[in-house]
Design a protein around this nucleic acid. Sequence first.
DNA 1: CGGGGGGTAATTGTCGACAATGTGCAATAA
DNA 2: TTATTGCACATTGTCGACAATTACCCCCCG
Lengths: 257, 257
Amino acid sequence: MVCGGAAARERGPDAVIAAPLERESTATRVAAVLRDRIVEGTLAPGSRIVELEVSRELGVSRSPVREALLKLAEEGLAAIVPYRGAIVSPLRRERFVELTEFRIALERFALDRLTERADAGSLDALRARVAAMRRALHAGNRRSAVDEDLALHRAIVAMAGNALLERAYDGLLAQIRLYIHVTSARYQRSEELAEEHEALLAAIAARDFPRARAVLDAHILHGFSEAVFEEDSGAPGPVPETSQTAIGKNARRYRPV
Amino acid sequence: MVCGGAAARERGPDAVIAAPLERESTATRVAAVLRDRIVEGTLAPGSRIVELEVSRELGVSRSPVREALLKLAEEGLAAIVPYRGAIVSPLRRERFVELTEFRIALERFALDRLTERADAGSLDALRARVAAMRRALHAGNRRSAVDEDLALHRAIVAMAGNALLERAYDGLLAQIRLYIHVTSARYQRSEELAEEHEALLAAIAARDFPRARAVLDAHILHGFSEAVFEEDSGAPGPVPETSQTAIGKNARRYRPV
DNA sequence: CGGGGGGTAATTGTCGACAATGTGCAATAA
DNA sequence: TTATTGCACATTGTCGACAATTACCCCCCG
């Protein structure tokens, strides 16, 4: 068999050597397929995932499928209950509140590091991402706008230089994507969104941690406040007591002075 | 076959009904065995874990062993490289720095929530844990002192009421345990350790978030500063440039005024 | 004496089959 | 009619075997 095989053919020519090192296992590919379907909405929240069905459909055995489901469960995209199987994690407001709170906490930590060590090169890379997102927004391509948005935030987190933070954030990202459609209204007002990101970058560039934190909070909570859940009877009402309290209080406390 | 079986017999008599609901799979038990060995030191950092060896030793097939290794890898206790197997995560100073930084970030977030919503009952529970730890320390039982110490911190995190935070912290806990022996000098001066915890609880009771945060930082960084790595040539020298910078700066910035 | 090739052994990745468990329906009795 | 019990089916958990890949060692060549 030729060195790179199918994997190599999918990449650039000069990646032929590196390809065998990073080719992915069947389990990884199955996980990728299922992950896509979940965040895409093809696999609706709450629906069952039967190992044998997936294995038959994808033409693999149950072992990699099972392994993939374990991965998805770790990412919070699926829930596995022993001897009963896996379901796509249902969308619940309470969980979205927790997700948002925790996301803010992680990104704050990242900003804390980043406002200390950000160099010109990193900032340029971030600015390029904002530009890309702006283009996607103007082109009306919501899907890639979402991708660019999240990629920007992930890049900020990655620049903090803490591998554990990065892993934790990656785990969150999948779930953020899962909930993105309830905040999709946000991507209508593209100018606003781009400006918020630019304000965030400016604060980072100025190495002004308090301001960066304030901008971040406003940015994320802004998206949060527009979230609409189907379980809501009628209009997008207020979030539940306790959680509202937590997010609300912090939003107020950390709002720019 | 009798209802509960072996699982029920290991519990109290009135747990017979509930037992079947919470019995654990083979994979979970294998993971528990390996996890214990890793944090205990029986399985040294860097040593290989061969699936077939474990499966033969524990009298199970490779499937649950494999599943257990995936879990351990998720927890950061093991590293899996495709077609080459799993090794116990090696102890590296850089990683310990990241671990400590991230741990502080998570616990700060917990304190932020806790100083808002802590009730008397919760505080009593925490105080009971400090007392338990103090007893263990005085009894010279270092192992259970460590357990109580971590259990206290975990309880604080749990009280924050964010499931995602809790999961992320649990993932960290295993790794903290992995590194605990490099900070074991800390458990010599038991009085000091107990006092720091009590100061933390007092700040929480007073709902004084800034003070709680300052006490927490001092507490964790205190343990950090005593860490000794074998790779160090001679005395426990300073931590590497970049990481030292990050931790040092924050320690200074957030120190009590 | 050192470095490259080839072949063997060891180990992981995947597979199909069987055992254990949960689910739902149907038959039965009150 | 309705609650209950038993049974058949669907699905997960575990197992042993085979395929794919890597590590190791020996041999050969320079």
